[in-house]
């Protein structure tokens, strides 16, 4: 199935055009940095390290549209980059690990989004909140680590 995608006409065009491939890469890098940055910022606020003067729910409300727009663009551009070597990526263990980590990280981000109003009303930040925020940071650090290891380990990308 992934081999079929890899050999589709539009994918070959993307893979062989340095300009197009470069453009998609620029979108992917920019939106990943932006999306991860804004998620981690909220995590750091929950941990009490960043932007402590700001109400948690206000900050969450401010970051929400940016985070998810960034994330959606990162997934879309990432899928296009994946398509150019789909068969090889899908078979590579580090790439599968990356996808797993990202799914877990997104689940933690959604948990945080849902719980923010509750946590903001608590007199002190609940331990659960701090724990989830810490896990979220670790997962994103892991996602970036496995991303830089994919070319190093498999020669892909």
């Amino acid at each position: 199935m992934w081999e079929v995608l890899q050999h589709a006409g539009w994918v070959t065009t993307l893979a062989t055009s340095r300009g197009l491939y470069g453009l998609v890469s620029v979108v992917h890098y920019s939106t990943v940095f932006f999306g991860v940055g804004t998620i981690v910022l909220l995590d750091l606020r929950i941990l009490g390290v960043a932007d402590r003067d700001q109400h948690l729910s206000l900050l969450a409300e401010q970051l929400r549209p940016w985070t998810w727009m960034g994330f959606a663009s990162a997934v879309f551009s990432g899928f296009l980059l994946f398509a150019t070597e789909a068969g090889d990526f899908a078979a590579a263990t580090p790439f599968r690990v990356k996808m797993l980590i990202i799914v877990l990280a997104v689940i933690s981000a959604l948990c945080i989004e849902w719980s923010v109003p509750k946590w903001d009303r608590a007199p002190v930040m609940p331990v659960t909140a701090r724990l989830v925020a810490l896990i979220s940071i670790m997962l994103w650090l892991g996602a970036i680590l496995v991303s830089v290891e994919i070319p190093a380990l498999t020669g892909l990308g």
């Binding site: 920019s30 990943v32 940095f33 932006f34 999306g35 991860v36 940055g37 804004t38 981690v40 910022l41 970051l63 940016w66 994103w140 650090l141 970036i144 680590l145 991303s147 830089v148």
Partner: peptide, 18 residues
């Protein structure tokens, strides 16, 4: 080193572009 660069960039660009 690349990981460090990207982790730093996420914080830098996340906050600057916001």
């Amino acid at each position: 080193a690349l990981w460090l660069h990207f982790v730093g960039l996420s914080m830098w660009l996340g906050t600057s572009l916001a």
